[in-house]
């Protein structure tokens, strides 16, 4: 039986159809999670949000598919790419990497963090631009002041790096310590916040 050969759909048409779907998928029809990627000086970032706010920021090295699958498992599989709805987030990163301290308040949804880790993230949000705090000092502000290692874990599993500034937490001996985006990136971000310029 001969197949009926139809022409491949024009990629521009498929892009336009996708944009229409994005425009329609709001309100009661909104997805569980919408996301986009943002090209930044520290590589491509994935930004994913719920209706409440940005819930996940991921570095390129974490892998887009792996991050999206985790979001599907933990928040919901109704996930749609909607660049237009996340223009604000993209502008926030543009401002941050241009050296503006606190470009504006980005609505965040911290539902991916639970319990003590969520508590630590709350304290981290009080660590201001350009400041540094040690893991031990951060622990001292929590309900478990001696849980230095658990604070380290909370930073290492921060679902919202950059927006919740885990890069401002450094080791008591003065070294920068680990970072989701790699220790070199942490050094660059700290330099950006002290000089206003992101080093290469």
């Amino acid at each position: 039986m001969t197949a009926v050969v139809t022409p491949p759909a024009d990629p521009a048409l498929l892009a336009r159809l996708h944009e229409r779907l994005e425009a329609r998928a709001t309100g009661a029809d909104a997805p569980d999670v919408h996301y986009r990627t943002v090209d930044s000086p520290v590589g491509r970032l994935l930004v994913a949000a719920t209706e409440a706010g940005v819930a996940r920021i991921a570095f390129e090295r974490e892998g887009e598919d792996a991050v999206l699958q985790t979001l599907a498992d933990r928040i919901g599989p109704r996930i749609l790419r909607t660049p237009g709805r996340l223009d604000d987030a993209a502008r926030w990163f543009d401002g941050y990497f241009a050296g503006r301290r606190d470009p504006f308040a980005l609505p965040l949804d911290t539902r991916l963090a639970k319990g003590f880790r969520l508590e630590v993230l709350g304290h981290l949000r009080d660590v201001g631009y350009g400041q540094r705090v040690s893991y031990a000092a951060l622990a001292a502000t929590t309900s478990s002041p001696r849980a230095v290692r658990a604070v380290g874990t909370a930073c290492a599993t921060n679902p919202l790096p950059l927006a919740i500034p885990c890069h401002r937490v450094t080791r008591s001996d003065g070294s920068v310590g680990a970072y989701l985006g790699g220790p070199e990136m942490k050094v660059r971000l700290l330099a950006l916040e002290s000089t206003g310029v992101l080093p290469e």
Binding site: Y35, R78, L80
Partner: peptide, 8 residues
């Protein structure tokens, strides 16, 4: 585990 809808 269900895949993200965007993949569909």
């Amino acid at each position: 585990m269900r895949e993200p809808f965007e993949h569909v």
